[in-house]
Design a protein around this nucleic acid. Structure first.
Lengths: 333, 333
DNA sequence: TTGTATGCGTTATCAA
DNA sequence: TTGATAACGCATACAA
């Protein structure tokens, strides 16, 4: 590892002050064209790159943003992350990626460390923080986007991006009813998941509008992965064999459920119809192909990053955006 | 966003110099227990967090590492990233995640920006950089781990982690032969992928040891995703219907291939046997379940991070580690 | 056990 | 158009 080349190195070789070099590097006006070219040449020659740390100390800007997700291995978040990173890279930003593993303590530590690193903005997915705590955290960041989480009272530097879970559940349940299904169950997300609670609420509401009684034993909590989906399906279907349709918290769970049905020979969708949420790539790869509520994750990622940049730049933006899911009919329902 | 609380704020309130506070914050000795407690209390009281930017400027350490992957959406890299991040978080490090999209220019820019941010180390996956360029890049980072890439001449601050692609191809081809397959094809990765070239070389070698002539028209290059795998399979199998086994560059491609076979009614593995590489979760979710060369991605991620930390800490480590893949028999071969 | 002076690499401010 | 000086927040080296 070689010694760092600094501004003063360039300045010394050019025989000018550090300030002129700084001006050139930052494309500021007030430098003769001849000087500018000369300095640029020297900088390239001796391989000078500005030290972002030093720059950050004085400007209070790091060209860095934090992205906090429950699990970057979940295709839903992986796709969001890709959207975020693509746009960030394009705009000269780097992203810190942190997993919370759905653990509040870890989430809090993650936010603390991001704050210490001086990120210019934060994209926080599926936060588990209690409202007061969350608001306090948001207030110390220059800008933040909340995905899958709402705010009681709006904060100017913050924008929320949410799925219309009410509408989503409505679409799913209505489709089940059209299929002639009546014993509709729900595999809910983790108990402390806000989206989980919202999707469950949507499910209840949809049942209610259809005048179907809600049966709480038809709801099963479940971690958002295939293995847990498999187990949840097993429990639900052995306890209540009459269930003929299941609305799953997400595609991962739905796919796990499909695995179980395949294993015990339950026919999908004849004996049991299944609808997931997200439309991750996996959904169209399994057999039967998964019917699901489509959400464009890459778009959400890009949207989040673009909006975050707008807040940072001080441009106005809507305070909350609602993403409308579309029912994507495939083979499982 | 409130004003930053600094060391001197704490110092002023405590009525001591900044240094005593600094010592306490950094757990250095030479401060009376009484003073230490008092300062800690004040720090907590006024919500003081050290400014890592300022700290980094003087220590030249940022508790930050860069992770560069072709595509964080590919489960193989997503799992590695998770392994890296989990361990990094545990040890107080944050990671910058950057996608290269298999684009050399982008990769170079990524490394430049990481360097400017002063990362303490770098984990670089599937680098496409030419050797000389790569070596130059590595030399300016304090420590780097190369995954899926070898080095012509060893660099002290760098360690490589590679899959034994020769052995992997051997396992796959041998298994095909045991199954009675003779017309064995290979869907190779992207043409400029180093692992792709190595896996192809392994494939040729394995064929050679089995005294089966190598037919270059039985090899098809392909981007590492399901859609491309589907297309590659289509081309390969329409041009050469006699092919009865395919060794795919990775599971994503293999799954795409399975989709194609399903579509045209080719029976797997009777008419065509398929073996992939990686063993991503998807492999056991598709039907028929994919036979593949198992690699523990999370382990690789953790190993990479652990080894990187060792280099940073100045502890010795092996210069190259070779991961042995295991043939995991499922249903596709 | 505590404090003072100095510098990390850069930009902001003001002066020339 | 250019430069000198201070400042960002902290840690290192040395002194008391």
């Amino acid at each position: 590892m070689k010694k760092r080349v600094t501004l003063s190195d360039v300045a010394e070789i050019a025989g000018v002050s550090m300030m002129t070099v700084s001006r050139v590097i930052n494309n500021k006006s007030g430098v003769s064209e001849r000087m500018r070219r000369r300095i640029l040449d020297i900088a390239k020659e001796i391989d000078y790159y500005p030290n972002q740390i030093a720059r950050g100390l004085v400007t209070n800007q790091t060209s860095t943003i934090g992205l906090v997700v429950p699990d970057n291995t979940n295709p839903f978040f992986a796709n969001i992350a890709r959207g975020v990173e693509d746009l960030a890279f394009e705009r000269g930003y780097n992203i810190f990626l942190i997993n919370t593993a759905e653990d509040v303590t870890r989430e809090k530590k993650a936010l603390d460390s991001l704050w210490q690193k001086g990120v210019d903005g934060l994209i926080l997915c599926s936060s588990r923080l209690p409202n007061i705590e969350l608001e306090k955290q948001i207030e110390r960041f220059p800008a933040t986007i909340l995905i899958n989480r709402e705010l009681k009272k709006p904060i100017p530097s913050s924008i929320t991006i949410n799925l219309n879970d009410l509408q989503g559940a409505q679409l799913a349940v209505t489709h089940f009813l059209n299929l002639g299904k009546r014993n509709i169950a729900h595999i809910s997300g983790p108990a402390n998941s806000i989206s989980g609670q919202k999707r469950l609420a949507g499910f209840k509401l949809a049942l209610n509008t259809a005048e179907i009684p809600f049966n709480s034993s038809y709801v099963q909590n479940c971690a958002p992965d295939t293995e847990s989906g498999y187990e949840a399906g097993k429990e639900l279907l052995t306890a209540h064999p009459e269930i003929d349709a299941i609305y799953a918290f997400n595609d991962l769970i739905a796919v796990g459920l499909i695995q179980y049905c395949l294993e015990v020979g339950k026919h999908i969708p004849q004996e049991i119809a299944i609808i997931g949420v997200d439309d991750i790539p996996l959904a169209s790869l399994v057999r039967p192909r998964l019917t699901t509520l489509h959400v464009n994750q890459n778009y959400i990622g890009k949207l989040a990053m673009r909006t975050l940049l707008e807040i940072i730049m001080g441009e106005s933006s809507p305070l909350a955006v609602l993403i409308e899911p579309e029912l994507l009919l495939r083979e499982s329902a």
